[in-house]
């Protein structure tokens, strides 16, 4: 059986003013269908670059990204991205933001009524159907991110890429959204890759946690499988041994072995 998403010997360098900086080196990773994988690491370790490579927004310097054995070298709707700052178009309503994506991807395949039902279904999924006629400036940060997730899900991607989706939110809103994402992942069985720098978030949501070493020339330091049963309940996990152990090993990786020097 072949791999679902395969990152094969990826290197990535940027050129600026004749100076070459290597950001990523020797990235090898295989992700299965339906898996939830978090990528964690200190700022500047190339997490976002890695996500952009998978999204096709930037190109690899060497190596390749394979999705179902086909090489990824340009962006496409089978790899939806939920951006850190939501990236909703401010002149469109919540509904129209999702509609833009749905019409583009399903314009020829579904009837108008089917598309409407599908948009509403996705807004329901993130509990945003009530605000469908509001503009992004009229809703809160957490709501914007929900719509961003709805837009990502609405194009039925093979992989949903989440770039620090909850980074700009307060702790309570963040917890709500994490629960929503867990529910969606459970019900849709979708493959998700999330970038985060929150250890608890990574352990709570992920099947596996990919830990990155510090840049430049960052690479995958360690991959931790989180053997927690699903569905996971935030409160039950607080004293769960597996949870505590997983949390500890990620913390140790980040703060003992790969301590971020510049942050001191």
């Amino acid at each position: 059986m072949s791999d679902y998403l395969k990152l094969d010997h990826i290197d990535k360098s940027f050129h600026r003013g004749g100076v070459e900086t290597q950001v990523l080196r020797e990235i090898n990773l295989v992700i299965d269908k339906g898996e939830f994988v978090s990528i964690i690491g200190h700022s500047g370790c190339g997490k976002s670059t890695l996500l952009n490579l998978i999204a096709g927004l930037t190109q690899v310097s060497s190596g390749c990204v394979l999705l179902e054995d086909r090489e990824v070298n340009s962006p496409g709707p089978e790899r939806a991205v939920v951006f850190q700052n939501h990236s909703l178009l401010p002149w469109l309503t919540v509904y129209e933001n999702v509609e833009l994506a749905v019409n583009k991807v399903f314009g020829g395949k579904k009837t108008r009524a089917e598309r409407h039902a599908w948009i509403m279904h996705n807004l329901d999924l993130v509990q945003m159907a009530h605000a469908k006629d509001k503009r992004p400036s009229e809703i809160s940060g957490g709501m914007k991110q929900r719509v961003g997730i709805a837009r990502g899900l609405s194009i039925e991607p093979k992989i949903l890429l989440l770039d620090e989706p909850f980074g700009a939110l307060d702790a309570l809103t963040r917890a709500h959204l994490q629960d929503s994402v867990m529910e969606i992942h459970a019900s849709l069985k979708s493959t998700m890759i999330m970038i985060t720098h929150d250890v608890d978030e990574a352990v709570l949501l992920s099947d596996r946690i990919v830990m990155m070493t510090n840049g430049p020339s960052a690479t995958i330091g360690e991959v931790l499988s989180v053997g927690l049963e699903r569905p996971r309940k935030r409160l039950d996990l607080v004293s769960d041994k597996t949870y505590i152990a997983a949390r500890e090993s990620v913390l140790k990786f980040l703060y003992e072995r790969h301590h971020f020097v510049e942050a001191a």
């Binding site: 927004l57 790899r79 939806a80 178009l89 583009k104 991807v105």
Partner: peptide, 24 residues
């Protein structure tokens, strides 16, 4: 960000002009 959205959705030049460029 808007350009990235357009790229992920694979909007063509004309769609990009009407749906992203002019409103933005």
């Amino acid at each position: 960000d808007y350009r990235n959205v357009a790229q992920v959705l694979c909007l063509n030049q004309i769609e990009f002009f009407y749906k992203i460029m002019v409103p933005s």
